[in-house]
Design a protein around this nucleic acid. Structure first.
Lengths: 160, 160
DNA sequence: CTCGCTGCAAAGCCTTTGCATTCGC
DNA sequence: GCGAATGCAAAGGCTTTGCAGCGAG
Protein backbone atom coordinates (compact mmCIF):
# COMPACT_ATOMS: atom_id res chain seq x y z
CA UNK A 1 0.00 0.00 0.00
CA UNK A 2 1.72 3.04 -1.33
CA UNK A 3 0.00 5.60 0.84
CA UNK A 4 1.04 4.02 4.13
CA UNK A 5 4.65 4.11 2.96
CA UNK A 6 4.13 7.73 2.14
CA UNK A 7 2.81 8.28 5.65
CA UNK A 8 5.85 6.58 7.18
CA UNK A 9 8.25 8.54 5.05
CA UNK A 10 6.54 11.78 5.85
CA UNK A 11 6.66 10.98 9.58
CA UNK A 12 10.36 10.08 9.41
CA UNK A 13 11.10 13.24 7.50
CA UNK A 14 9.58 15.22 10.34
CA UNK A 15 11.22 13.11 13.06
CA UNK A 16 7.85 12.00 14.31
CA UNK A 17 6.98 8.48 15.32
CA UNK A 18 5.20 5.81 13.35
CA UNK A 19 2.36 4.59 15.55
CA UNK A 20 -0.50 2.19 15.05
CA UNK A 21 -2.94 4.98 15.92
CA UNK A 22 -1.73 7.17 13.10
CA UNK A 23 -2.05 4.38 10.57
CA UNK A 24 -5.45 3.36 11.92
CA UNK A 25 -6.89 6.85 11.61
CA UNK A 26 -5.64 7.19 8.06
CA UNK A 27 -7.09 3.76 7.24
CA UNK A 28 -10.56 4.91 8.26
CA UNK A 29 -10.41 7.73 5.76
CA UNK A 30 -9.15 5.41 3.04
CA UNK A 31 -11.99 2.99 3.74
CA UNK A 32 -14.52 5.81 3.59
CA UNK A 33 -13.48 7.77 0.53
CA UNK A 34 -16.08 10.30 -0.45
CA UNK A 35 -17.28 10.80 3.12
CA UNK A 36 -16.62 13.85 5.25
CA UNK A 37 -15.90 12.49 8.67
CA UNK A 38 -15.98 14.23 12.01
CA UNK A 39 -13.62 13.22 14.81
CA UNK A 40 -16.51 11.47 16.45
CA UNK A 41 -17.36 9.50 13.33
CA UNK A 42 -13.76 8.37 13.04
CA UNK A 43 -13.92 7.31 16.68
CA UNK A 44 -17.10 5.29 16.08
CA UNK A 45 -15.78 3.61 12.97
CA UNK A 46 -12.61 2.64 14.79
CA UNK A 47 -14.63 1.22 17.66
CA UNK A 48 -16.56 -0.99 15.26
CA UNK A 49 -13.24 -2.41 14.18
CA UNK A 50 -12.34 -3.04 17.83
CA UNK A 51 -9.69 -0.40 17.62
CA UNK A 52 -10.10 1.91 20.57
CA UNK A 53 -8.27 5.16 20.14
CA UNK A 54 -9.01 8.07 22.40
CA UNK A 55 -10.76 11.12 21.00
CA UNK A 56 -7.84 13.29 22.01
CA UNK A 57 -5.55 11.24 19.83
CA UNK A 58 -7.99 11.36 16.97
CA UNK A 59 -8.15 15.14 17.13
CA UNK A 60 -4.38 15.35 17.27
CA UNK A 61 -3.99 12.87 14.45
CA UNK A 62 -6.43 14.35 11.95
CA UNK A 63 -4.77 17.68 12.51
CA UNK A 64 -1.36 16.17 11.85
CA UNK A 65 -2.61 14.31 8.78
CA UNK A 66 -3.98 17.58 7.50
CA UNK A 67 -0.66 19.36 8.07
CA UNK A 68 1.10 16.57 6.21
CA UNK A 69 -1.30 16.87 3.30
CA UNK A 70 -3.15 13.57 3.61
CA UNK A 71 -6.46 15.09 4.63
CA UNK A 72 -8.23 18.32 4.08
CA UNK A 73 -10.68 20.05 6.32
CA UNK A 74 -14.13 20.81 4.99
CA UNK A 75 -16.70 22.94 6.63
CA UNK A 76 -20.42 22.63 6.07
CA UNK A 77 -21.45 25.05 8.76
CA UNK A 78 -22.89 22.35 10.97
CA UNK A 79 -20.65 23.11 13.92
CA UNK A 80 -18.26 20.24 13.47
CA UNK A 81 -14.91 19.96 11.77
CA UNK A 82 -14.96 17.43 9.00
CA UNK A 83 -12.08 15.87 7.14
CA UNK A 84 -11.73 13.94 3.92
CA UNK A 85 -8.92 12.32 1.95
CA UNK A 86 -7.07 14.84 -0.12
CA UNK A 87 -6.58 13.88 -3.74
CA UNK A 88 -2.94 14.35 -4.67
CA UNK A 89 -2.12 17.30 -6.95
CA UNK A 90 -5.63 18.57 -6.92
CA UNK A 91 -7.61 21.28 -5.32
CA UNK A 92 -10.60 20.53 -3.26
CA UNK A 93 -13.64 19.46 -5.19
CA UNK A 94 -16.97 21.10 -4.45
CA UNK A 95 -20.05 20.24 -2.49
CA UNK A 96 -23.75 20.40 -3.05
CA UNK A 97 -25.50 20.48 0.29
CA UNK A 98 -29.21 19.85 0.50
CA UNK A 99 -30.74 22.27 2.97
CA UNK A 100 -33.71 19.95 3.51
CA UNK A 101 -32.20 16.55 4.19
CA UNK A 102 -28.59 17.55 4.78
CA UNK A 103 -27.24 15.05 2.27
CA UNK A 104 -24.00 16.10 0.65
CA UNK A 105 -23.27 15.44 -2.99
CA UNK A 106 -19.93 16.00 -4.63
CA UNK A 107 -19.01 17.78 -7.80
CA UNK A 108 -15.94 16.07 -9.09
CA UNK A 109 -14.61 18.67 -11.47
CA UNK A 110 -12.67 21.62 -10.27
CA UNK A 111 -14.71 24.46 -11.63
CA UNK A 112 -12.59 27.28 -10.39
CA UNK A 113 -9.13 27.00 -11.86
CA UNK A 114 -9.68 29.83 -14.32
CA UNK A 115 -11.51 31.91 -11.77
CA UNK A 116 -8.57 31.56 -9.42
CA UNK A 117 -6.10 32.80 -11.98
CA UNK A 118 -8.31 35.76 -12.70
CA UNK A 119 -8.51 36.65 -9.02
CA UNK A 120 -4.77 36.30 -8.57
CA UNK A 121 -4.22 38.74 -11.41
CA UNK A 122 -6.80 41.18 -10.15
CA UNK A 123 -5.94 41.16 -6.46
CA UNK A 124 -2.31 40.11 -6.16
CA UNK A 125 -3.28 37.29 -3.82
CA UNK A 126 -1.31 34.06 -4.06
CA UNK A 127 -4.18 31.63 -3.86
CA UNK A 128 -3.44 28.30 -2.23
CA UNK A 129 -6.84 26.69 -1.97
CA UNK A 130 -10.54 27.32 -2.08
CA UNK A 131 -13.72 25.92 -0.72
CA UNK A 132 -16.99 26.15 -2.54
CA UNK A 133 -20.31 24.98 -1.21
CA UNK A 134 -23.64 25.23 -2.95
CA UNK A 135 -26.78 25.06 -0.86
CA UNK A 136 -30.09 23.99 -2.32
CA UNK A 137 -32.78 21.34 -2.53
CA UNK A 138 -31.73 18.01 -3.95
CA UNK A 139 -33.86 16.25 -6.56
CA UNK A 140 -34.93 13.68 -3.98
CA UNK A 141 -36.32 16.31 -1.63
CA UNK A 142 -37.95 18.19 -4.48
CA UNK A 143 -39.77 15.01 -5.43
CA UNK A 144 -40.81 14.34 -1.84
CA UNK A 145 -42.25 17.80 -1.36
CA UNK A 146 -44.16 17.55 -4.63
CA UNK A 147 -45.60 14.28 -3.38
CA UNK A 148 -46.68 15.95 -0.16
CA UNK A 149 -48.26 18.80 -2.08
CA UNK A 150 -50.34 16.48 -4.20
CA UNK A 151 -51.37 14.49 -1.14
CA UNK A 152 -52.45 17.69 0.54
CA UNK A 153 -54.50 18.62 -2.49
CA UNK A 154 -56.00 15.14 -2.63
CA UNK A 155 -57.08 15.49 0.97
CA UNK A 156 -58.54 18.92 0.37
CA UNK A 157 -60.46 17.54 -2.57
CA UNK A 158 -61.81 14.65 -0.59
CA UNK A 159 -62.99 17.06 2.13
CA UNK A 160 -64.96 18.93 -0.44
CA UNK B 1 -34.20 54.84 7.91
CA UNK B 2 -35.72 52.45 5.51
CA UNK B 3 -34.19 49.26 6.81
CA UNK B 4 -35.54 49.68 10.34
CA UNK B 5 -39.02 50.09 8.91
CA UNK B 6 -38.42 46.93 6.97
CA UNK B 7 -37.43 45.21 10.19
CA UNK B 8 -40.59 46.40 11.93
CA UNK B 9 -42.79 45.32 9.06
CA UNK B 10 -41.16 41.95 8.89
CA UNK B 11 -41.62 41.46 12.63
CA UNK B 12 -45.27 42.49 12.46
CA UNK B 13 -45.84 40.17 9.54
CA UNK B 14 -44.57 37.31 11.67
CA UNK B 15 -46.47 38.41 14.79
CA UNK B 16 -43.21 38.96 16.62
CA UNK B 17 -42.42 41.91 18.83
CA UNK B 18 -40.49 45.02 18.04
CA UNK B 19 -37.88 45.35 20.75
CA UNK B 20 -34.97 47.69 21.33
CA UNK B 21 -32.61 44.71 21.41
CA UNK B 22 -33.56 43.62 17.93
CA UNK B 23 -33.03 47.09 16.53
CA UNK B 24 -29.75 47.50 18.42
CA UNK B 25 -28.29 44.27 17.07
CA UNK B 26 -29.23 45.18 13.54
CA UNK B 27 -27.70 48.63 14.02
CA UNK B 28 -24.34 47.11 14.90
CA UNK B 29 -24.27 45.29 11.59
CA UNK B 30 -25.29 48.42 9.72
CA UNK B 31 -22.52 50.39 11.40
CA UNK B 32 -20.00 47.71 10.52
CA UNK B 33 -20.76 46.92 6.92
CA UNK B 34 -18.09 44.78 5.36
CA UNK B 35 -17.22 43.08 8.65
CA UNK B 36 -18.08 39.53 9.56
CA UNK B 37 -19.07 39.68 13.18
CA UNK B 38 -19.28 36.92 15.75
CA UNK B 39 -21.88 37.01 18.50
CA UNK B 40 -19.13 38.02 20.88
CA UNK B 41 -18.02 40.90 18.68
CA UNK B 42 -21.57 42.16 18.49
CA UNK B 43 -21.75 41.96 22.26
CA UNK B 44 -18.52 43.95 22.65
CA UNK B 45 -19.56 46.62 20.18
CA UNK B 46 -22.87 47.01 21.96
CA UNK B 47 -21.11 47.31 25.30
CA UNK B 48 -18.97 50.14 23.93
CA UNK B 49 -22.18 51.94 23.12
CA UNK B 50 -23.40 51.31 26.68
CA UNK B 51 -26.02 49.01 25.37
CA UNK B 52 -25.90 45.84 27.42
CA UNK B 53 -27.69 42.98 25.77
CA UNK B 54 -27.15 39.45 26.97
CA UNK B 55 -25.26 37.01 24.79
CA UNK B 56 -28.26 34.70 24.76
CA UNK B 57 -30.37 37.43 23.20
CA UNK B 58 -27.68 38.21 20.67
CA UNK B 59 -27.53 34.59 19.58
CA UNK B 60 -31.29 34.45 19.34
CA UNK B 61 -31.43 37.74 17.48
CA UNK B 62 -28.78 37.11 14.84
CA UNK B 63 -30.48 33.84 14.11
CA UNK B 64 -33.81 35.58 13.72
CA UNK B 65 -32.31 38.31 11.55
CA UNK B 66 -30.82 35.63 9.38
CA UNK B 67 -34.17 33.86 9.05
CA UNK B 68 -35.78 37.16 8.09
CA UNK B 69 -33.14 37.77 5.45
CA UNK B 70 -31.31 40.72 7.01
CA UNK B 71 -28.10 38.85 7.73
CA UNK B 72 -26.30 35.94 6.27
CA UNK B 73 -24.07 33.49 8.01
CA UNK B 74 -20.51 33.13 6.80
CA UNK B 75 -18.10 30.48 7.84
CA UNK B 76 -14.36 30.88 7.71
CA UNK B 77 -13.55 27.68 9.52
CA UNK B 78 -12.28 29.47 12.61
CA UNK B 79 -14.76 27.83 14.95
CA UNK B 80 -17.13 30.75 15.30
CA UNK B 81 -20.31 31.66 13.52
CA UNK B 82 -20.04 34.97 11.76
CA UNK B 83 -22.75 37.12 10.27
CA UNK B 84 -22.82 40.02 7.87
CA UNK B 85 -25.44 42.28 6.34
CA UNK B 86 -27.12 40.64 3.41
CA UNK B 87 -27.32 42.72 0.28
CA UNK B 88 -30.88 42.71 -1.01
CA UNK B 89 -31.57 40.65 -4.14
CA UNK B 90 -28.08 39.31 -4.29
CA UNK B 91 -26.28 36.17 -3.51
CA UNK B 92 -23.44 36.15 -1.14
CA UNK B 93 -20.26 37.72 -2.39
CA UNK B 94 -17.01 35.85 -1.95
CA UNK B 95 -14.09 35.98 0.40
CA UNK B 96 -10.35 35.98 0.08
CA UNK B 97 -8.86 34.77 3.35
CA UNK B 98 -5.18 35.25 4.02
CA UNK B 99 -3.81 32.14 5.66
CA UNK B 100 -0.93 34.09 7.15
CA UNK B 101 -2.53 37.11 8.78
CA UNK B 102 -6.16 36.01 8.77
CA UNK B 103 -7.34 39.23 7.14
CA UNK B 104 -10.44 38.82 5.03
CA UNK B 105 -10.90 40.64 1.76
CA UNK B 106 -14.09 40.70 -0.22
CA UNK B 107 -14.75 40.07 -3.86
CA UNK B 108 -17.74 42.14 -4.75
CA UNK B 109 -18.88 40.47 -7.92
CA UNK B 110 -20.88 37.32 -7.92
CA UNK B 111 -18.71 35.07 -9.99
CA UNK B 112 -20.88 32.04 -9.89
CA UNK B 113 -24.24 32.84 -11.46
CA UNK B 114 -23.47 30.95 -14.64
CA UNK B 115 -21.79 28.14 -12.78
CA UNK B 116 -24.91 27.75 -10.67
CA UNK B 117 -27.16 27.44 -13.68
CA UNK B 118 -24.85 24.86 -15.17
CA UNK B 119 -24.90 22.81 -11.99
CA UNK B 120 -28.70 23.01 -11.73
CA UNK B 121 -28.99 21.65 -15.23
CA UNK B 122 -26.48 18.90 -14.66
CA UNK B 123 -27.60 17.71 -11.25
CA UNK B 124 -31.25 18.66 -10.89
CA UNK B 125 -30.51 20.54 -7.69
CA UNK B 126 -32.50 23.67 -6.98
CA UNK B 127 -29.69 25.88 -5.78
CA UNK B 128 -30.57 28.49 -3.21
CA UNK B 129 -27.22 29.90 -2.20
CA UNK B 130 -23.53 29.29 -2.25
CA UNK B 131 -20.47 30.12 -0.26
CA UNK B 132 -17.07 30.46 -1.83
CA UNK B 133 -13.87 31.07 0.07
CA UNK B 134 -10.43 31.38 -1.42
CA UNK B 135 -7.45 30.81 0.84
CA UNK B 136 -4.04 32.26 0.06
CA UNK B 137 -1.39 34.80 0.93
CA UNK B 138 -2.37 38.42 0.62
CA UNK B 139 -0.05 40.92 -1.12
CA UNK B 140 0.79 42.49 2.24
CA UNK B 141 2.02 39.22 3.71
CA UNK B 142 3.86 38.35 0.53
CA UNK B 143 5.73 41.65 0.81
CA UNK B 144 6.47 41.09 4.50
CA UNK B 145 7.93 37.66 3.93
CA UNK B 146 10.10 38.95 1.08
CA UNK B 147 11.37 41.60 3.44
CA UNK B 148 12.22 38.97 6.00
CA UNK B 149 14.01 36.89 3.39
CA UNK B 150 16.21 39.77 2.33
CA UNK B 151 16.95 40.65 5.96
CA UNK B 152 17.93 37.07 6.59
CA UNK B 153 20.27 37.18 3.62
CA UNK B 154 21.73 40.48 4.74
CA UNK B 155 22.49 38.97 8.13
CA UNK B 156 24.07 35.92 6.55
CA UNK B 157 26.24 38.19 4.42
CA UNK B 158 27.36 40.24 7.39
CA UNK B 159 28.37 37.06 9.23
CA UNK B 160 30.58 36.11 6.34
C1' DC C 1 17.15 5.10 27.82
C1' DT C 2 14.98 9.09 26.00
C1' DC C 3 11.58 11.75 24.43
C1' DG C 4 7.49 11.73 21.71
C1' DC C 5 2.74 9.74 21.83
C1' DT C 6 -1.31 8.18 24.03
C1' DG C 7 -5.23 8.02 27.20
C1' DC C 8 -7.81 9.98 30.61
C1' DA C 9 -10.06 13.51 32.74
C1' DA C 10 -10.50 18.21 33.21
C1' DA C 11 -10.85 22.53 31.24
C1' DG C 12 -12.02 25.77 27.44
C1' DC C 13 -14.91 27.78 23.98
C1' DC C 14 -18.83 28.81 21.65
C1' DT C 15 -23.69 28.13 21.64
C1' DT C 16 -28.17 26.64 23.40
C1' DT C 17 -31.64 26.05 26.91
C1' DG C 18 -34.74 26.45 31.20
C1' DC C 19 -36.94 29.46 33.84
C1' DA C 20 -38.25 33.58 36.35
C1' DT C 21 -38.91 38.32 35.18
C1' DT C 22 -39.84 42.04 32.11
C1' DC C 23 -42.25 44.38 28.68
C1' DG C 24 -44.73 44.81 23.92
C1' DC C 25 -49.22 45.01 22.38
C1' DG D 1 -53.17 41.03 31.45
C1' DC D 2 -51.38 37.67 28.17
C1' DG D 3 -47.78 35.73 25.91
C1' DA D 4 -43.49 36.73 23.76
C1' DA D 5 -38.71 38.34 24.69
C1' DT D 6 -35.01 38.98 27.75
C1' DG D 7 -31.33 37.97 31.17
C1' DC D 8 -29.07 34.93 33.93
C1' DA D 9 -26.95 30.89 34.95
C1' DA D 10 -26.55 26.30 33.90
C1' DA D 11 -26.02 22.83 30.65
C1' DG D 12 -24.48 21.05 26.10
C1' DG D 13 -21.45 19.87 22.35
C1' DC D 14 -17.12 19.95 20.21
C1' DT D 15 -12.25 20.56 20.82
C1' DT D 16 -7.98 21.31 23.38
C1' DT D 17 -4.82 20.64 27.16
C1' DG D 18 -2.11 18.85 31.35
C1' DC D 19 -0.03 15.14 32.95
C1' DA D 20 1.25 10.39 34.12
C1' DG D 21 2.46 6.30 31.90
C1' DC D 22 3.62 3.84 27.71
C1' DG D 23 6.25 2.69 23.77
C1' DA D 24 9.05 3.76 19.34
C1' DG D 25 13.68 4.46 17.97
Amino acid sequence: MKIYEKLRNELKKRHLRITSQREAVLSIFLENQGEHLTADEVYEKLSHKNSHISKATIYRTVDLLKEMGFLSKVNFGDGMERYEVKEPNSHQHHHLICTKCGRIYEIKEDLLEELEKLIEEKTGFKIVDHQLNFYGICPRCQALSEEKESKKKAIQHSIK
